[in-house]
């Protein structure tokens, strides 16, 4: 791998990034379900920050798909940085769009949720992950959909959205068209 990275190869467009906040990764799996269309996409657009790549920071991106809701302090910080460095930001899947399953814990106090997991159901308690040590993030009292925190350009519903709709959306954005996103319910 001594040659320069091929990011400036002709025909390539600006980077696309994917972010995973409080979700199950199912939306990312649906993205992987593009299968061989991934290779076609890779010829057109450079992969920036993503759970699939090794960027530790978030290089500026033209198109960013954000999976998951905002559940902890890290999510909040990451989302703000990602918004500042993304031209087009997409709420990718129901957790990002509405909070969905991740927000179901909002029915309970965060202390009770933690207590259930780490006190009531442990055999040995050597410590409790309450966060705030600079490594483990503190949970937010309420899980929020991403549009409550930053401005969102497009909403792609689904739990997860199916691969065809992901492909149509990304392709439209790459071609500079206004995407038509079919809404779905449930």
């Amino acid at each position: 791998m001594s040659e320069a990275p091929s990011r400036e190869a002709p025909g390539r467009e600006a980077p696309m990034a994917t972010v995973w906040l409080g979700g199950c990764s199912g939306c990312h799996m649906s993205f992987m379900d593009l299968d061989e269309r991934l290779l076609a996409l890779a010829e057109r657009v450079e992969l920036g920050a993503s759970p699939l790549s090794d960027f530790k920071d978030f290089p500026p991106a033209d198109i960013t798909l954000v999976e998951g809701a905002v559940a902890n302090e890290d999510n909040l910080e990451v989302l703000r940085r990602v918004r500042a460095r993304s031209k087009v930001l997409i709420a990718f899947g129901d957790c990002a769009v509405t909070g969905n399953v991740t927000a179901m814990r909002n029915l309970f106090a965060v202390e009770d949720v933690l207590d259930r997991a780490y006190r009531q159901s442990a055999t040995v308690i050597a410590g409790l992950p309450l966060g705030g040590d600079g490594v483990v993030p503190r949970l937010l009292p309420r899980v929020r959909p991403i549009h409550e925190v930053v401005q969102v350009d497009h909403f792609l519903q689904g739990c997860p959205p199916d691969a065809d709709r992901i492909f149509d959306l990304v392709l439209a954005l790459l071609e500079g068209r206004t995407p038509e996103i079919a809404r779905r319910f449930g």
Binding site: L107, F108, D112, A117
Partner: peptide, 8 residues
């Protein structure tokens, strides 16, 4: 990360 399925 943590989502708390055990409670929800």
């Amino acid at each position: 990360e943590f989502r708390g399925f055990e409670k929800l």
